[in-house]
Design a protein around this nucleic acid. Sequence first.
DNA 1: CGATTTTAGTTGCATACGCAACCGATTCCG
DNA 2: CGGAATCGGTTGCGTATGCAACTAAAATCG
Lengths: 165, 165
Amino acid sequence: MKQPNLPETHLEAWRRYYVSFWRIFAAIEADLQAAGLPSLSWYDALYELYLAPDRHLRMSELARSALLSRSGLTRLVDKLEKEKLIERKSCPVDGRVQHAVLTDKGVEVLRKIWPVYRAGIAKYFAAHLSDDEAQEFARLMSKVVSAMEQMPGAPACEKNKKLPE
Amino acid sequence: MKQPNLPETHLEAWRRYYVSFWRIFAAIEADLQAAGLPSLSWYDALYELYLAPDRHLRMSELARSALLSRSGLTRLVDKLEKEKLIERKSCPVDGRVQHAVLTDKGVEVLRKIWPVYRAGIAKYFAAHLSDDEAQEFARLMSKVVSAMEQMPGAPACEKNKKLPE
DNA sequence: CGATTTTAGTTGCATACGCAACCGATTCCG
DNA sequence: CGGAATCGGTTGCGTATGCAACTAAAATCG
């Protein structure tokens, strides 16, 4: 059986994409752990809130943007709330909805994580690309990302974003 | 604080890389599950064995190439062995070493997984890149991958590869 | 308005995984 | 050779996460 619609070039691209991602991800997580910091899941959730207007989001919005299932997010928010990094606030206009709101302490933690995260991105990923290459890479990735965004049942995931300076 | 050694372009590339990977990965896993097939972890391990000479590898080699910790691999191999997809064989020359050996049934399963996996790669990833783009992408990724390979304490990971036709 | 359906979030349960401690086998050295 | 250090693999334990079932609140419809 051959590979209909999947030329060898594309397959090779996928393989490297897949391997490199796992390796880099593991390396960054290891750096965070070594520094006694929370993992990227926490960062992603906190950072999404940081970006959001008024630093608050509905649970399900946050789930989607933090690349988690709704139940996964519920648990993550439980932990973040216990650490006072966010607060839950029920929505006054719709009793079903809960908002997660980033606290100042949450912002602090975000600022502690970021230097280590940034260093990891630089070391494991960015160091190997010139400016032009990075630009081209971003262009190619954006085609893939935007295609995924439009897919109907985008199954959970959407981690990471940017950083609070 | 600014971003030393991490220009905005590179950061943007990273963000898209990160988001797209999780989304694609989740979508492929969902497809596999919907088809009643095992997950990519199983595929990765089986496929590594498939590629290996005589279809066998030491546990720790397999762990590394299947992107798992040693303990994670022990458990995965337990399950694969229970399903008769592989066999454990102790090494005659070194009593500490165990070899995982792919069985014919393991190859069968590999062949069942691949079409779905391939379709996922094509749909979620390859469809968005021209041949030239895929080639350029592979080139950029290879720089990142090979840099990671040489890193000393590569923490676990190395999933996926190619496919058995 | 009351019953049904839908929506948002949570909880029970199962699974996958890593770290650290451990065990037996091997190798290193005095 | 014999004890100590090392290596390969496994096991105990904790954690992260998803799915399916559930609850409460809204929306829809007769």
